[in-house]
Design a binder for these strands. Structure first.
Lengths: 230, 230
DNA sequence: TCTAGTACACTTGTATACAAGGTGCAACTG
DNA sequence: CAGTTGCACCTTGTATACAAGTGTACTAGA
């Protein structure tokens, strides 16, 4: 039984604690679907992989469990969480609510400088697509949405969005298709166009339309489930 | 130097892990202002208090650090987080955004049964005030707001609100005054009255007015700070 | 062949020991 | 007396050992 764990980088530096670095590596691996739902994350296996003791590994896994990315069963094992559609819908609700409210703060204070900064991120996403760099695409997608929190003078709110987005990104990685990437760019630009045109409600509508595209995946997931049940 | 730690209950059962119980006790103590901002939470001190080893204590403190209720400084110590007004404003933004969006989901589906259940919670709050039971008052306040998430068919969203509300409740415990309690009841009832009257926008306005009352405390806090600086 | 029972390997939870670094005080030096 | 240096004690971070429970595979018996 080959484990996706073996594929992970194992070089830890000393600038931050071991548990912090292990948490980051594992989180990224789960969100980017390098570690599959249901896959075992034995503490000892991670220890061997990173050449550290169980203590920092445990701390990392416990944080992942709080994020809902790992499920810990005492005396049984720890596993990458299954894709739970209800939990993901909750995360989507959180994200949509917060980003919508952030946009309402930003719209009245929108400036050309903001527009330029965000359009440069969209351009970066375009390059990522051209290079087939999916990770880079998602990174810049995060930056795009985070910038709204920053512009709304509420950068701390991004922490909450970030946590919710982890589950969503993981879900999209499994259910999404490549054709969607180009569409995302257009939707991002539509939001910016509306903001440039001083059309707050239009921008909000464009944002909601953009975020709610995930509902298509919900439906696909549901039909998959029904199909599997038959 | 007397520590608030000494006042905490120390009896742990075996139905859940020690770290889980220690987390709950410490979290409640911090939110209810039994442990003051800046107060030291030495791991060894907690160990002695609960008669357990450092391992579960560390796990609990790390969770509290993630919640923003405790600040950990390596090789220096762990301390109850200071009241950070910016962080609290972020939490308020998160809470108001989510509860507002939840209310929009609930309003169209509002039923007399929902109204009755929520009014019984308000009645419970009234009893708590009469008995001078501040903890009970806040518990029922949590239940009141949680019920909206439940009625909106998004109970999982409460987790996020709950985390944000912790900082807010702690802040209110320090800055709030007793006279506010009775007003809270009226504001809760105003929300329910609007919902009963099928007035969604009115209910939303009442909710926002209710939640934004905390801005008064923000202003008071700011003037306190300015005064202290002079 | 099938079943019941047992031993074992593996898991997470907890306890303890050691390592590395920061603070403050005391003693020493100029 | 001022400044500095070193030690004692504290902190958190990590490593290791033990405890308790679960699933599985193998063995003995009918």
């Amino acid at each position: 039984m080959s484990s996706g764990l073996a594929e992970l980088d194992v070089f830890l530096n000393r600038r931050s604690s071991a548990s912090e670095q292990i948490y980051s590596v594992l989180r990224e691996a789960i969100v980017r679907a390098k570690l599959l739902p249901g896959e075992s994350i034995s503490e000892n296996a991670v220890c061997r992989q990173f050449n550290v003791s169980r203590t920092p590994v445990r701390a990392a896994i416990q944080r992942l469990a709080e994020d809902g990315l790992v499920s810990v069963f005492p005396q049984l094992g720890s596993f990458v969480s299954q894709i739970d559609i209800v939990s993901i819908q909750d995360s989507h609700f959180v994200r949509r609510s917060l980003e919508t409210c952030l946009l309402r703060e930003v719209a009245p204070r929108w400036t050309p400088a903001m527009s330029a900064e965000m359009r440069s991120l969209v351009a970066a996403q375009e390059r990522s697509i051209a290079e087939g760099d999916i990770d880079g695409f998602h990174d810049n997608d995060e930056n795009f949405h985070q910038l709204f929190a920053s512009f709304a003078q509420r950068p701390g709110v991004w922490t909450t969005i970030h946590a919710a987005k982890a589950k969503l990104t993981r879900f999209i990685r499994f259910s999404g298709n490549a054709a969607r990437f180009a569409v995302v760019l257009q939707e991002h630009l539509a939001i910016l166009d509306a903001l440039d045109a001083n059309d707050g409600p239009g921008a909000e509508a464009a944002l909601v339309a953009h975020l709610d595209k995930i509902f298509v995946l919900f439906d696909a997931h549901a039909s998959d489930t029904r199909h599997a049940a038959v």
